[in-house]
Every structure is written in C-alpha cells, then in structure tokens.
C-alpha cells in the first residue's frame, strides 16, 4: 500500500490577471483562482501510480479557506484524501517558511499513514520558484528529484523508485531510495476528463482542515512573514521601451528599407547562408 501525498496550491490565473497600472498591484478579483496547473499533473501522476501499485493518494495545501476548492479539484482528479492547513500565522510565507509549514503538516499526515512518496509540481505560476518541493524534501531528509517527466518504476518492497529527469538535451534515468520527493514536469501525463462519480465525491468532500495549533510541536518563529528570510522590498512596473522607427510606404518600399537596415549586417547572413532553418 503506497501512500502518496501531492502538494498542491491554489493560485490566481496569471494568464488573465489584470494589473492596476497606478499601484502596481494585481487586481485579484480579476483573476479566478485555479489549481496550479503543474500541481494538477502531480495529482494525476499520484493517481496513476495508485492505479498501478495500489494505495492511497492524499493532497495537501497551505492557503486561505477558499483553497478548499483546489482540494475538491484534486478529488475530481481522483485523490482520496485532502488536507489543508490554514491560519493567519502562515500568511506572507516565502519558500522557506512554506516548506517548513508543509513539512509540519506532512509529519502529522505521516502519523495517520506513513508516507512513501511526495509529489510536487515543477513550480507555481504565482510564486514561480520551484523551490518549495526541494525544500520539503530537505527538511524531511528525503532525496529530492526535480524535473521528473516519467516514473519508470516504484518498488515498495525493495524501497526504491526509478524515474526520468528531464535535462536540457535529453533525460537521465535515476534511481532513488524511498521515501523521496518528485517535482514533476507538465509533460509527465495528460489530464483525462474526470469521471462523474469522482465529480460527485468531490462535490460532497469535506477536507481535513488544520490550523497552527493542530500541528503540535511547531516553531512559530519559522512561520509566515516572520519566518521568511526574503522580503519584497518594492514592486515596480517593468520598463516600457520607447519604441523605434516605423517603416512607411507600400509593402515594396517597406521591404526595401528593411533590407537596407538588415543587410548592413551582411556578415551574419553570409555565415548562415545555406540555412539550416529548423
């Protein structure tokens, strides 16, 4: 019986986010909250491993109360249990404080059922660091395996996992002792359309919700803003470039002008002549 825990986060959909150009703050109401896209692949992979090897899939999130919705989404994908830690004390956490709080929650989950494998997304689209996963692994003294895009084998009896890690120009096959932690790429799997029974289960599901006081032995100075070594000192709008020259005239003219400009650097083209395109 494998127990896999996926760490998931609810994030604003930065694709459609609107910024207030005056204050440089984001208009949160403009962006619907979604399950971090990478994390949905983490949950899907956990569910696939459960189908392959049997076991239980739990998901864990730290976030404000509405993040329950993200847990429900994971139940739709097929997770069995959902845990959420929510407390004012967690607010303002950077990656170090986040990994600390999540580790404390994972320790508590492990008391309910020992954990064999933790799966995180490659990164969140709001925090966008990819640091939380390895952080958790270090705190729990598990080997972190980042950029995982295929799980070749999990052997619980002999206590190892074999995975593919994506490299810039290929991949490596790596073997790790269990328990360990994966951060997964999006291409590890494709999300299927959830079944209706899972949808119903999700609609009914009530996650386990813990506050700081439920986490027992916890060092409060390591939580939230207080426990975060990094602070955001200022935010500013990215520099707006000035813009260059528009080439006028009819298309023939424009092309002639462009050619003159570009071919002033003819050496670039000569070396490339022959052209390997793509």
């Amino acid at each position: 019986m494998l127990h896999i825990v996926a760490c998931i986060k609810q994030v604003p959909d930065t694709k459609i986010i609107k910024m207030n150009p005056k204050t440089n703050t984001m208009d949160r109401s403009s962006a619907p909250a979604i399950l971090n896209p990478y994390d949905s692949h983490a949950v899907e992979e956990a569910v696939r491993l459960r189908v392959r090897y049997g076991g239980v899939v739990s998901v864990l999130t730290m976030g404000p109360p509405p993040a329950v919705k993200a847990i429900r989404k994971c139940i739709e994908i097929g997770a069995d249990e959902g845990y959420m830690i929510t407390d004012r004390a967690f607010a303002g956490a950077d990656t170090l404080a986040t990994s600390y709080a999540l580790t404390k929650a994972l320790e508590k989950i492990a008391e309910i059922r020992p954990i064999d494998l933790i799966i995180c997304g490659k990164m969140t689209i709001d925090g966008d660091t990819g640091q939380v996963g390895p952080g958790i692994a270090r705190r729990l003294d598990m080997p972190p395996l980042t950029s995982v895009n295929k799980v070749a084998e999990i052997n619980q009896a002999e206590g190892y996992a074999i995975v593919h890690r994506k490299l810039e120009d290929g991949y490596e096959v790596i073997r790790s002792a269990l328990p360990c932690l994966f951060s997964v790429e999006k291409d590890i799997n494709e999300l299927p359309y959830s079944t209706l029974p899972n949808m119903l289960r999700a609609a009914r599901y009530q996650p386990h919700i813990w506050s700081v006081s439920d986490l027992g032995d916890i060092d409060k100075t390591q939580l939230g803003l207080k426990g975060s070594p990094t602070i955001v000192s200022s935010v500013w709008a990215p520099q707006k470039p000035q813009g260059g020259q528009m080439l006028d005239g009819d298309p023939q003219d424009q092309i002639k002008q462009l050619l003159d400009i570009v071919l002033a650097r003819k050496e670039l083209f000569e070396s490339a002549a022959g052209g390997d395109g793509s």
């Binding site: 986010i17 910024m19 984001m26 990094t230 602070i231 500013w236």
Partner: peptide
C-alpha cells in the same frame, strides 16, 4: 525578478541571513 507572470517586477531582499 519578474513576478505574477511578468506583470510586475519585484525587488527581493534577505536582511537577516
């Protein structure tokens, strides 16, 4: 670094470590 999908830039400090 760019934050929130590149919509803003944020300057980050680490004062205590």
């Amino acid at each position: 670094r760019p934050a929130f999908g590149g919509n803003i830039m944020a300057t980050i400090l680490c004062k205590k470590y």
